[in-house]
């Protein structure tokens, strides 16, 4: 079995090219499967169809039905059997078709997947990746637009990450597959077709790091997933008013890497945390609490949050109002600046 080194991938991944997030994820799974015969992909409609978002397109054709499994329609079954396969030495990458469908698998994730390593004191490793397209903005029916990441970040034993761009999609998914810990991998579904240049020779950040996406001095925006683009757009707009907003992509939601956020806040004195998910007891709550602890004397204003509302996800004709957008982000920045 080849050692899982990220350099030894096929020719497709050695030249600079323009890719989408969906393509980056596909390339990541392809590279991981080429490197390690124990990597397998499983989920509903991911084989012949290539997934409802086509993220797994072509994988079953190239790697066969025993490595790319079209599973029965049962999320507890997907996670529960992935655990057994991982105990047997496989590295399953599961796709949950939509965020709102993960809950039948919640029991296996919380009761077994997250606790197996601890229960066995490291004798049993369960390197399972669970890919979850999440978030709204696609005009979908109920259960297709949710942001449940905070529920998983609350569970000890799970790593929770979210990519915001094609380059991270490509690297972070490979790193998640290489991880010996279970990883919940949240993919910003409305950004699947965003494009970026991937230069595979540039070494990636580690999976657990946050990243400064845009430097600034006026205020700090900390965010992740689909809201990174929203915050970058907001920072561009704020530039016209002479404000330089620093944007930090958290990338890893559990564990959080808040040092870059704290560094930033010590310079700007102001923090706005942005996420689509409901606000109460969420990732944004955690960031606000910890930055307040770390940077108490640097803060010029209370940490503010821009979230989805603490309601169920609304009917899609209302989602534009529910989802944080450029204006709501800038409104929070203004409130912070005028505090």
């Amino acid at each position: 079995m080849a050692a899982p080194t990220v350099e030894s991938t096929g020719s497709e991944t050695t030249r600079t090219q323009t890719i989408t997030i969906a393509k980056g994820l596909n390339m990541a799974m392809r590279a991981a499967m080429e490197r390690d015969p124990r990597v397998m992909v499983m989920g509903e409609d991911i084989g012949r169809l290539g997934g409802v978002f086509r993220v797994t397109d072509g994988l079953q054709k190239d790697f066969g039905e025993h490595r790319v499994l079209d599973t029965p329609l049962a999320e507890s079954g997907i996670v529960g059997t992935a655990i057994g396969l991982a105990m047997r030495g496989y590295r399953p990458v599961c796709e949950i078709q939509f965020d709102g469908f993960i809950f039948p698998g919640f029991d296996q994730i919380v009761s077994q997947l997250s606790k197996m390593h601890y229960r066995s004191q490291g004798r049993v490793k369960v390197p399972v990746v669970i890919r979850v397209p999440f978030g709204g903005g696609i005009g979908a029916v109920e259960h297709h637009s949710e942001s449940p990441e905070s529920l998983f970040a609350h569970v000890a034993g799970l790593k929770v990450v979210s990519c915001s761009n094609p380059v991270d999609a490509y690297w972070m998914l490979q790193q998640a597959i290489d991880s010996d810990d279970p990883v919940l991998f949240f993919e910003p579904k409305r950004r699947y077709w965003e494009k970026a240049e991937l230069d595979p020779t540039t070494p990636p950040l580690s999976l657990g790091s946050s990243a400064v996406m845009r430097p600034g001095t006026t205020a700090t925006l900390a965010t992740y997933g689909p809201m990174v683009k929203t915050c970058l757009d907001a920072a561009n707009a704020a530039e016209e008013d002479g404000h330089e907003l620093e944007v930090v992509d958290l990338r890893s939601l559990s564990p959080l890497d808040l040092e870059p956020v704290a560094d930033s806040v010590r310079r700007t004195g102001r923090l706005v945390v942005v996420s689509e998910s409901p606000a109460e007891s969420s990732i944004t709550s955690e960031v606000a609490t910890r930055i307040q602890q770390e940077c108490f004397y640097s803060l010029e204003a209370p940490v503010l949050r821009v979230n989805g509302f603490d309601t169920p996800y609304p009917p899609s004709r209302l989602e534009e109002g529910y989802l944080p957008d450029l204006d709501r982000v800038l409104d929070a920045v203004d409130r912070s600046l005028t505090y």
């Binding site: 529960g80 057994g84 396969l85």
Partner: peptide, 10 residues
């Protein structure tokens, strides 16, 4: 039962 089934698939 699911973990065992996955193991058996392996």
């Amino acid at each position: 039962c699911l973990n065992a089934t996955g193991y058996a698939m392996g």
